[in-house]
Structure formats: C-alpha cells, structure tokens
C-alpha cells in the first residue's frame, strides 16, 4: 500500500492511534488499527455494518478500553483512560444512537454540558440556571436550535437530538470532535445541512473532525481523507478520489470479497 500521508505529513498530528486491538471474548473486533488525525483535518472512517467503527470510536472516547495498542493526544497518553478524562483532555463526541437528557430542556442539557466539562459538578446551592447563560444561548443558536431551547429533549425530533448532542460535544471547546454517524436516522435533505453545520463550526473553532458515516454523499463531499475499515482492520486509507477508485473498496461495497 502506498503512503497516504503525503498530503498531510507537513502538518502536526493531533491524535495518534497505534496498533489498537480489541476483542470481545474470542471475537476480534479491532485488529491492529493505526492511524493519525491531523490538526484541522476531516477524517472519515467508513466500512460495512459490524466493521468495528463504533468500537474504534469507543476505544478513543474511553467507553471501552483497548486490549493492546496506544492512543495519544499530542503528548498525552489517553490509552484506557475513562471518558471524563478524555473529554477534559479535549475530545468531544457524539454517539451512534443519539443520547440526550430526556427530562431536561435543550437549554438545561447544554448548560449541563458546560458545567460538566468545566468541572463544576460539585456546586450545591446557587441555582444551575445562573451558570453559563450567555455561552449556552450562543451555542444553541449556533447549532440551529434557537427556537427550541425551552423544549424537553424527549420531545425533540431525532435530528434535533443530534444537534443537541453536537452542542454538548462542543461545550468544552474540544480539539477533536468524534462523531459516530452524525446524520444517521435523518431525512436526506437534513443530512447535508447538519453536516455543513458541523463542518463550519469545526472550521471556525479549528477542531479536527473524525467521523463515521454510511451516507457516501456526505462522506465524499466533506472528508479530507478516508479510512476504510473491514472486519476490524484497515483495508485502505487515502484521499476521497483515490478511495472512490480503489478496486478493493468497490468490491467490499458491492459485497464481493476481493481477497
């Protein structure tokens, strides 16, 4: 395989994943996965269902801990650290099945995210709505939920829950945004608009974006670089035009086994 890094090698790598392995019992979900994410880059991980994309993200986000391998953010070793540590280190994330706080309003949910990331959980007396009012309002506006800020998360459409999650992930002003299928379960028209939102926000804030996605239009429109993950291993990685031409990738997506 030829080096895919020529484009980015001049830039500094932000996240380094080295020889990551994860087994569930006897099943090897992630096998020897290594890659880097560069500053300001938009890197997509694609692959068929069950390829291990979510598992890989959960390893980086700390929801799972790897059996082998290392994860570094700059000089900081994140391997096996718990999710709060990783969040505070500067990695925000969203989940494949969007998880917002059903009984809270959008405003409270985003406020909670600010309180959480700023380490202000143990304040007991002053009412929480006095904290981060302006920041919260601005962020809700930015993700396009201004009109819905007083609604309960449980009442929102799924696409709006995804936006709430985006706002929560952005509250800590992360250096990396990890998004597991940001547009899954949304209407086609809304997908591109949400993704444009994400891309614009991350560019404004100089956030590197690592995302998985099944919608190839979204992937090829927005990704700078693509990693193809098949059965827990990296099949190829490279810029979108090269991936689009790759015979192995086409074989995987057409359901034929090239090996």
């Amino acid at each position: 395989m030829d080096s895919p890094l020529s484009l980015a090698s001049s830039r500094t790598s932000l996240l380094k994943v080295k020889a990551l392995c994860k087994n569930f019992g006897a099943f090897e979900a992630i096998k020897n996965v290594s890659f880097s994410l560069f500053e300001g880059e938009k890197l997509a991980v694609i692959g068929p269902n069950g390829a291990g994309k979510s598992t890989c993200f959960n390893l980086i986000g700390g929801q799972l801990s790897p059996d082998q391998g290392h994860i570094h953010l700059g000089d900081m070793d994140l391997t096996g650290k718990p999710p709060p540590f990783i969040a505070k280190a500067g990695i925000g994330r969203s989940f494949q099945i969007a998880a917002a706080y059903a009984s809270l309003t959008v405003e409270m949910a985003v406020q909670a995210a600010f309180l959480a990331i700023k380490g202000q959980a143990y304040h007991f007396i002053k009412p929480s709505h006095h904290y981060y009012r302006e920041d919260t309002a601005a962020l809700i506006e930015q993700v396009g939920l201004g009109a819905l800020s007083q609604r309960l998360c449980a009442e929102l459409a799924y696409g709006d829950v995804k936006r709430v999650e985006l706002a929560m992930a952005l509250a800590g002003n992360p250096r990396i945004l990890l998004m597991d299928e940001p547009t899954a379960g949304m209407a086609v028209a809304e997908r591109q608009s949400l993704m444009e939102h994400v891309v614009r926000l991350s560019q404004d804030r100089n956030i590197a974006l690592l995302f998985t996605e099944h919608d190839m239009d979204v992937v090829f429109r927005h990704a700078d670089r693509i990693i193809v993950l098949v059965r827990g291993q990296i099949l190829v990685e490279g810029p979108p035009d090269r991936i689009a031409q790759d015979p192995e990738v086409r074989a995987v997506y057409l359901g034929e086994d090239p090996l």
């Binding site: 925000g92 059903a102 929480s128 929560m168 509250a171």
Partner: peptide, 28 residues
C-alpha cells in the same frame, strides 16, 4: 430543594437520563 436545582442536582438528573452522555461530557 436547593441542591436539586443546583449544578449538582442538574447533573444528577442528567446522569439518570444518560450516564453515558454525561460521562462523555466530562463528569465521573
């Protein structure tokens, strides 16, 4: 009552709704 409305109480309710989310937001 005060504690329920405080940041602590808010995050406690958030943890009830989704501990996975809150943990990814930075709270143990």
């Amino acid at each position: 009552y005060k504690i329920t409305l405080s940041p602590f109480g808010l995050l406690l309710r958030a943890a009830r709704d989704s501990s996975k989310r809150l943990s990814a937001d930075g709270v143990h």
